[in-house]
Every structure is written in structure tokens, then in C-alpha cells.
Amino acid sequence: MAANEYVVRTKGLVKIYTMGDEVLRALNGVDLDIRRGEYISIMGPSGSGKSTLFNAIGGLDRPDEGSVFINDVDMAQLDARELAYLRCHTIGYIFQSFNLIPVMTALENVMLPTVFAGTPTDEGIERAIELLNIVGLGHRLHHRPAQLSGGQQQRVAIARALANHPSIILADEPTGNLDLKTGEEIIALLRRLNKEQGVTVISATHDLKMVDVSDRIVWIRDGKIAKIEERADVEINIGQMEGEEALV
């Protein structure tokens, strides 16, 4: 079952943005293997290519060179309907700005992926209620995003990401719009789901609180992987963050 050890693999990812005459290599040859069930943080300053990598792994944008393999399937080979299936069933997305549908209630937002998956309405509602209970919002089912705090909105987004039992949760700066304490709660929730549900969590962030819970930390800089650390190694250094501070 060696093939199943890695849930995500990237090979020589390159993404180029051109702005006028300037050519920016947002990703400049990224090779990354992510194991099933891992909690991995992609760390780096803003503009380092974190979000570009997030988009490439999630199939939200096509890289200019290189490939992304999800469960050993090359994403570049997929047609639109297969890609939609992957986004619907295999990957759950969490964004910095939550991206909930503002006119829908928490329940309806969490249900939406089950609608696209063709789940019968009753089952979808049941699943959504179950998930909102898991993230601690069982009492806020019929509230609209505007009636919820930032932390609660992100919980709804996490519940939505889990709706179709994905094997991967991709989070792009999930704590970026939240205060310190709420951010910690969200991180703890992601970690709990990672352990309890066995879902692989890949999080792009520059929030150092993430280091504590991650199995591995990928430091990215100028579109390249600067270093990959196992958590055990980081814990030794966690007292002296100066080195990382300079990087972040």
C-alpha cells in the first residue's frame, strides 16, 4: 500500500505571474510529499507563494509547470467534471475570509456541498447538523454569517469543508482574520478533527501558533521550499524563535 502513503505530491511546481514587464515566479520548483493523516503547515511571509501553492494543490488554479498528484492521480489529466468531483468529495477548503454564502444560514452553507454531491436533502440536513454540532455551533443552525462572529463563521466554514467526508482539508490562512484567542480555538479544532477524523490538514499560514500543532512545517520563501521541519525538531527550537522571526 505504498502508493497510499502520500495523499498529495507535487513535482517541480512553477507558477508565473506577469504584471506588465515584471515576471514573478510565485512558485519556483516546489516538490512536496504530504503523508495521509498528516497535519502540515506551510509557513512563510506574505508574498512567499503560500497561497499560490494552496491554489495549486487544491486544483483551484493550474500551475504553469510541474504536476500535483492527489491520491496518485495527476490533476492536470482530469477533465472539468473529474476536477469538480475532486473538489466536492476529496478536498475541503477553508479560506481566510471564510467565503460563506452570505444569504444562506449556517445549516444551508454546510449543506451546499452535499447538494452538489447529489445527497438526498434529508441526509444532507442530518449531516450538516451533525457537523455543526461537532464544531460547537449546534445552537446556531439558522443564523446567517452576518449574525455570527468571525470565529463562528470559520467554524461553519470548517463544518462545510467536512461535509462530503474529504480526505484533505486545505486551509489558507484560517486564522488570518481572527483575534489571538479565536485563532487558537480554530487551530485546536482543526487539530482535533485531524486526529479524530483522520483527515489530512494542509494549512498555509504565517501564524506561529500553528507550529505547536503541526506534524511538519514547510518553510517557503520566494516560491521555493526553504526547509521542512518535523515537529520534534521544532520543539527543541521553539524557545528561541529569533531565527524564524527573521524569516516570517
Partner: peptide, 14 residues
């Protein structure tokens, strides 16, 4: 890995 590629299903048309 010496294994045939896994196939991804097609998303259903609602």
C-alpha cells in the same frame, strides 16, 4: 509505485 493510476469519478450532473 508499480500500480495502475486510480481513477477519479466524474461529478454528477444535477
Amino acid at each position: 509505485f508499480g500500480q495502475s493510476p486510480m481513477r477519479v469519478q466524474k461529478q454528477i450532473q444535477l
